[in-house]
Design a protein around this nucleic acid. Structure first.
Length: 523
RNA sequence: GGUGCUAUCGUCUAGCGGUUAGGACAAAAGAUUCUCAAUCUUUAAACCGGGGUUCGAUUCCCCGUAGCACUACCA
């Protein structure tokens, strides 16, 4: 095997939002490329004109950008160009010497290779209409367009040369099919699974090109492009494994077997419950995102949630995804993207599908949230605060609050419900808490405590703790009873951090005001 | 139906012939405490079945079973 530069590609179809499984494929490609000092290409496989979704391309680029998966060549790599500006085609400008990188813009290239196959007798032209094929499938069970049936179909193998030319001249639609020689064992070497062998007889004569839209199918375009773009490793989902032998046959037909890329088929991402591939519906059904970014489907008008909008940090998503199907071997679970680039290896990718564990995704986000500084968190929290009408608030206090409360949340978005009482006095009191913690003697005790606190010039946590505990001891009150009632006055419910942390933040005046309000309001 | 891939706690996984089968998430219990969390400690929890190979199989091989994928003029 000759050593050559590592070049990998991520090649999505612009048929909608980028699925989280696709994100993982992109990630593994990226990690592999970076680790080997290679190139990461992005190619758009838009050979199915009927499934094109406007905006999908932009979505893909934006998602990868958010996650920090950088493209070196192809669509979305405009920033690699010296002095490049993201202007002409927006995010989707391309850069590189092997373009165009959109398959729909490579028609001329495919024509050439289709002709080559036709001329060498490795492919043939077929006129059978979809309807006719459908009928065959009805008539003959397990009908397959292959060596056993092709001589009874409408194609350049059974029709005269003149007839074929006439039909084409008349504008009849046709396809070009790959002529697969039967009964040959084809072996694909997979970096993750080892050798996979199938017999060519089970393959059908795949359509390589359709004249209806003048576009190749995936199989042809894929092989031609990977070859021309000098792709060294094809890392893709397991759903492609069954067609990998076909691809090998295609490389052979072109005489490119020497430079054929190596293959690695990744295990699938499965539904959290039950079995089967993870789908968009599962996310909707179980309430978690399957897309990196929120997606507005222009065709259906539906909006699907995204990890970014749900408050996930990109590094948490990357970390979580990396470990879904790959493991370094030790007990380490928290990896930065740089560490992943260091440690990743294809031979440690597992072979079996991984069920999607949404709870663990949250845990990862929690871990990354803990790593953020209080200053960073305060900054991230600002927009949320402003939404609730809090605009001017002392920065150091805000940071202090974030530091106090961050360990109990998974997302920045949960911060408000955990901390709102620092900013806004309670107007209502949680009934459950009242029932459990507000007793007959509470109003009287609160009144006494109010008077006690009113006298304190030193409102520090240390001093308050001292005098209040002393007072409780003298009166032989229950600590729990007093403190819980006090907490209800300040927070409105039986939750929150240590009580003196709260008084410390809101101060004497506000503490007394809240007590007064509570005593007046709670019947 | 055909072909292929896969198979360790509920989940993600470690293990690459000899281990008390390890870790993490989730779960349970306890500690802590003025509350709720968090945290810490602890517990429970797995080698799909059957044959081989071997002194010895979770590990290697075969068969079965199950799951998944593919089987389009979609990718």
């Amino acid at each position: 095997m000759l050593q050559r530069k590592v070049r990998v590609r991520f090649a999505p179809s612009p048929t909608g939002a980028l699925h989280i499984g696709g994100v993982r494929t992109a990630l593994y490609n990226y990690l592999f490329a970076r680790q080997h000092g290679g190139d990461m290409l992005l190619r758009i496989e838009d050979t199915d004109s009927t499934r094109f979704v406007p905006g999908a391309e932009e979505y893909i680029i934006e998602a990868l950008q958010w996650l920090g998966i950088e493209i070196d060549e192809g669509i979305g790599a405009w920033n690699k160009k010296q002095g490049a500006k993201n202007t002409d085609k927006g995010l989707c400008s391309e850069y590189g010497e092997n373009g165009p990188y959109r398959q729909s813009e490579r028609r001329d290239i495919y024509h050439k290779y289709v002709k080559q196959l036709l001329d060498s007798g490795k492919a043939y032209i077929a006129f059978d209409t979809p309807e006719q094929l459908e009928q065959k499938r009805q008539e003959i069970k397990n009908f397959q367009y292959d060596a056993t049936t092709r001589m009874s179909m409408l194609n350049s193998l059974t029709l005269s040369k003149e007839e074929v030319e006439k039909r084409i001249a008349d504008g009849e639609k046709y396809v070009v099919r790959f002529k697969i020689e039967p009964n040959e064992d084809v072996t694909v070497h997979d970096l993750i699974r080892g050798d996979v062998t199938i017999n060519s007889s089970i393959l059908d004569d795949k359509v390589l090109y359709k004249s209806a839209d003048d576009l190749p199918t995936y199989h042809l375009a894929n092989i031609v492009d990977d070859h021309l773009m000098q792709v060294s490793h094809v890392i893709r989902g397991e759903e492609w494994l069954p067609s990998a032998p076909l691809h090998v046959l295609l490389y052979r037909a072109f005489g490119w077997e020497d430079t054929m890329p190596e293959f690695a088929h990744l295990p699938l991402l499965l539904k959290p419950d039950g079995n089967g591939k993870l789908s968009k519906r599962d996310g909707d059904r179980l309430g978690f995102p399957v897309f990196p970014l929120e997606f507005h489907d222009p065709k259906t008008g539906t909006v699907s949630m995204g990890y970014r909008e749900q408050g996930y940090f990109p590094e948490a998503v990357i970390n979580f995804l990396a470990l879904l199907g790959w493991h370094a071997g030790g007990d380490k679970e928290l990896y930065s993207i740089d560490e992943l680039i260091q440690e990743f290896s294809l031979d440690r990718v597992s072979k079996s599908g991984a069920k999607f564990d949404f709870e663990k995704a949250k845990w990862f986000n929690h871990q990354y949230l803990q790593q953020k500084s209080d200053t960073e968190l305060a900054e991230l929290f600002m927009p949320e605060l402003q939404k609730h009408g809090i605009s001017a608030f002392p920065q150091d206090t805000l940071e202090h609050i974030c530091g106090l409360m961050k360990e109990r949340v998974n997302f920045v978005s949960e911060l408000w419900e955990q901390t709102s009482f620092f900013f806004v006095a309670p107007t209502e009191f949680d009934e459950k808490s009242l029932k459990k913690r507000w007793k007959e003697e509470s109003p009287r005790q609160m009144q006494e405590m109010y008077e006690l606190l009113e006298q304190q010039d030193d409102f520090s946590a240390a001093n308050l703790d001292k005098v209040v505990m002393q007072w409780i001891a003298e009166k032989e009150y229950g600590v729990g009873l007093v403190m819980n009632a006090f907490r209800i006055c300040l927070v409105g419910a039986a939750r929150g951090p240590h009580i003196w942390e709260i008084t410390d933040v809101i101060g004497k005046e506000e503490t007394l005001r809240r007590m007064q309000y509570a005593m007046k309001t709670i019947a």
